[in-house]
Design a protein around this nucleic acid. Structure first.
Lengths: 251, 251
DNA sequence: ACAAAAGTGTTTGGCGTACACCCATGA
DNA sequence: TCATGGGTGTACGCCAAACACTTTTGT
């Protein structure tokens, strides 16, 4: 969140920021895109500020785009975090001065911030982590192996995951997280990983098929150990419809 | 939201406000607490600003308390609204000047605002609508008969109701909306009103009883036409437990 | 006695859960 | 040929939905 590609701070909505929890799925793991800043070597969620002439949703899209190169992605606001002390004592005036930041901007960075949390589901293979500068690291990290995060980002991350779990019962997911062609076991692994528990293979198949959002392809996955699983794709049209109307029954 | 019991605007978090959708239940109607300001005779949601040294949740509690006199109530953040043009052109500089507001404060009122939406469930009979001043009207209005509201307050209200409907499936409600003693038909009416559809009496009874949060009292409602219904109260302890753990099945 | 609302029990169907067998593939 | 994982079908049980009759009370 430190000065990077920033405009003059006056062009931003003061005291308000955006933090994104970006989920991806790879290697049967639910991963989160995290950033290690050169500033103090600590990990954080990708975030940004809100231009005064920009909707907050648009600002969130910008953050996502600038970090992954992706557009038109599933992105959802889930909570706003506004405890007074959530960012107290994060930036010391001295350190900021050391970076050559003006007193005016120091006030900006050290003032109280409320942050709006968004979570995104993105296609891991298409996303290209983009550091702002050379001193920054952008990396996918397994959600079970997230290191200590700055501020209340751990709380934000947990809340995002909790929200995702709840919303899993209200809408279909997978379209945004999986490649175009995928197998049922892969989809099941995704659900299991998010929910944190195992599901019965046969029941999962029946249920996911009954939703009517999958198209069975006349193609099998190749180069795999054991029996080759069938490939499926999402029926985008029906998928969107169910997304809008919601599921009647959860997991 | 106009200058009333305000401190100096500098003590508030700039560009950020709170709006509360306060629900009450009376006369078999779901009602919303609305405010008509003396400023321009239009209706709005009760709202307020956030002190720089105050958590946003605390600020929401303050708004609720100042409008209803109630404390310790069910209050929940549901969404943050931040379209750029949501409050454009609401206060004209001229009008504000006319009210004797300083140029500095005019800038405050006409600048871009992001608002955090909370919804509350309150006991109608205990709440005492409290106008800020004599030119203000605070009134309970049936949720089906809400007049035109300022800004995007209609959108906020709709979103609150939508959220309430969804969360009805995840948690018990009623404790905050009904008097201490109530009948099953009353509770059912509450659910029906929120959901906007009728429910089967017998199935409702079975389901609500099976949750295990009701205590059947040895007392019947008096002075009613027809057969006197039994009175119930909530088992607060079990109610809280279910609130925390969530329901497994919805309506 | 009649109307209106409250209280109670039963049946049925669908879905979620549990479970067993066969098939395909790589080692 | 064996281990591993994929694909398919069935039986059971519970709960939600649909539904009818009796009871109480005011008029």
């Amino acid at each position: 969140m430190l000065k990077t590609h920033l405009k003059n701070t006056k062009e931003y909505q003061p005291g308000l920021s955006i933090d994104c929890v970006i989920f991806g799925f790879d290697d049967n793991q639910l991963k989160v895109l995290l950033i290690k800043t050169g500033y103090n070597d600590s990990w954080s969620l990708p975030g940004g500020f809100i231009s005064k002439d920009e909707d907050i949703d648009t600002a969130a899209v910008s953050v996502l785009h600038s970090r992954t190169g992706l557009k038109g992605i599933f992105l959802r606001q889930f909570n706003t975090f506004g405890a007074v002390k959530r960012n107290q004592d994060h930036f010391s005036s001295d350190a900021l001065a050391h970076f050559g930041i003006s007193p005016e901007e120091v006030e900006w960075y050290t003032s109280r911030f409320v942050t709006i949390g968004y979570y995104a589901l993105v296609n891991f293979s298409r996303a290209i982590p983009q550091p702002d500068n050379s001193s920054e690291t952008v990396q996918w990290i397994d959600h079970n192996e997230v290191p200590e995060l700055i501020l209340d980002h751990r709380v934000i991350l947990d809340k995002a995951l909790e929200t995702l779990r709840t919303e899993l019962n209200l809408m279909p997911i997978g379209y945004n997280l999986l490649p175009e062609k995928f197998t049922i076991p892969e989809l099941q692994k995704l659900y299991e990983t998010i929910l944190g528990r195992t599901l019965d293979r046969r029941n999962f198949l029946r249920k996911i098929i009954s939703i009517g959002i999958l198209t069975k392809l006349d193609e099998k996955k190749s180069n795999v150990a054991h029996k080759a699983p069938n490939l499926y794709s999402f029926d985008k049209e029906k998928y969107e419809e169910v997304l809008k109307n919601g599921l009647t029954q959860g997991w």
